[in-house]
Design a protein around this nucleic acid. Sequence first.
DNA 1: ATTTAGCACTCAGTACCTTAGAGTGCTAAC
DNA 2: GTTAGCACTCTAAGGTACTGAGTGCTAAAT
Lengths: 346, 346
Amino acid sequence: MLTERQLFILQLLINDYIQTAEPVGSRTISKREDVTFSSATIRNELADLEEMGYIEKTHSSSGRVPSEKGYRFYVDHLLSPPLLSKKDVNNIHSLFAERMVEVEKVIQQSAGILSELTQYTSIILGPEVFETRLRQIQIIPLSKDTAVVILVADSGHVENRTMKIPPSVSMSDIEKVVNIMNERLRDVPLISLKSTMMKEMATVLKKHIENYNQVNTMLESLFLYTNAEKVYYGGKTNILTQPEFKDIDKVRLLLNTFEQDEVMYNVLRPEKNGIEVKIGQENDLEAMQHCSIVTADYFIEGKRMGSIALLGPTRMEYHRSMSILGFLANDLTKTLTDRYQSFKHW
Amino acid sequence: MLTERQLFILQLLINDYIQTAEPVGSRTISKREDVTFSSATIRNELADLEEMGYIEKTHSSSGRVPSEKGYRFYVDHLLSPPLLSKKDVNNIHSLFAERMVEVEKVIQQSAGILSELTQYTSIILGPEVFETRLRQIQIIPLSKDTAVVILVADSGHVENRTMKIPPSVSMSDIEKVVNIMNERLRDVPLISLKSTMMKEMATVLKKHIENYNQVNTMLESLFLYTNAEKVYYGGKTNILTQPEFKDIDKVRLLLNTFEQDEVMYNVLRPEKNGIEVKIGQENDLEAMQHCSIVTADYFIEGKRMGSIALLGPTRMEYHRSMSILGFLANDLTKTLTDRYQSFKHW
DNA sequence: ATTTAGCACTCAGTACCTTAGAGTGCTAAC
DNA sequence: GTTAGCACTCTAAGGTACTGAGTGCTAAAT
């Protein structure tokens, strides 16, 4: 177990290192006003902390640097209750004061403000299609064999796909199908659209439509891919300013990962609720082994809809990041829930 | 004027430098099989070429490096007629063989293949709204005071905006407006939608709608922003592998520029027709002063619709890049024109 | 009049050394 | 248990010497 003094010293050391990115020596710590004991004492304590694995040396006569275990301990036990400056709070509130209509914009703006406030890269996973429901479906012909299908969700989200129409399917067939769909599929969650359609509509369609088989394969191809949630970024290149990212290859690896939505999508699915911190090697992705990620969830009517995250070096301002993230997640939850309630069952 | 031999030497030098990224010395050139004269002769010629500004030294006893003037001369006068390897041609053709339905996908795939073939970053400016025309407009209510407006263009492009509805405007008013719009605005180019609406519809609307003023401001706000063309990328981080981009600050500047669609939009608007090359300082943007950009246009029915481009270091494989780009632009033009003709006036 | 061989010279890059400074671990005294 | 003191370690920065690639110039060869 760690003594009070060891805890104190560990905290000072990590705080200092987060600010300076330089290994911290015993003298640096002893010079602080609130430290009453000498550098020699600190040296002894540091040696103990190192033995326990909370800190490391970069070389045999260097100062100490927090290990990942050290950061983990710091995050779990040494953080005082979150406190945000008024400036930050105002910044965030002013964002939501605007009352933007489009969810996309709310989220894009949130990503922007997060990265501005922290100088890290912010990542937001857009609302899950999980809980959004179909409001209306439309098929608009483009030519004799193609048409655009438009799905409008109750959240205001619009999806569209271009589709080939088999020559054997007539326009009036399509109109019938659309009508039936709008009757039967309204308020069905987008995510279960395909299965519901196959179950509920099969019999009705067979009754009204001649070329049932063609229509069916056409519809199947239509819902083949469930579009994954969109990933939004703020300050994509902020992380390049951190001294730990001088190495171009690291940067390339990381930026490439950003481009792969499916991968990032998994990065952002939190394993537990609340604010979660993944430090260095705790991340599965190789590209992120030198990074830490703080994630928080946002909700609509109590249901988890997406995540917001901050990506920085392992030497990250965890405290501030967690506070800001928590605060913004909260505001986002309120805003989106308000918005959603005014739409629901309307 | 340059002598035959000077032209030859300049060409050899640039070709060599493009491959190696190392300053080229007289001995290196003299060692080539097709060079019959000695390194001393070459030294004299190099001194002349330097005096004329086509090549430079990196320091007083280094080999020579092409200057931007040198590259310009190379591009303008020293390139033999474009020749593509069969492999490249096949690669590109196989892309278009698929006959994808969605323009977006065609373009995204093109960007991908461009960057793969060249290892540079490819940038494509999506089709201009300029020539795409309105096929249909739809307004779908979301709640008592919001609705989604969906515009479908004849190209299959779908745009949507969420809109606030003033309380004084009734649902039946909106339905009337939509009907009128679909009657009057069909086949109007998206870009002139706003002006046409204001001109042609004012009188009709006044006749049929009670709250003409409210409806009018609502419609005005709707068409406030003409959505700019989308910018697509392939191999965004490819450029980081080039040795001239070791400097993180240069990289950051460039990547930040990529995020700013409006800026990139201007970069890609070509000044003249055909394949254009901008070398180093010829680019206006600071971030691109160390890059060269090769652009080509693609057309639909003879009308310029967008551009495709390759971004690399000034030490770029101009010849190959121009060939590949020209070839792909051509295929893109054919594919999109075919596609468009099957939609047109349908 | 060109071309070429030869040679002195220049400069970047590398290796190697030295020194300064920051930091540690250990010991002995407090 | 704490601290002062000291020997030791290692990095970073600066200086020197050496190597190799390359140049420019001159004088001889073609």
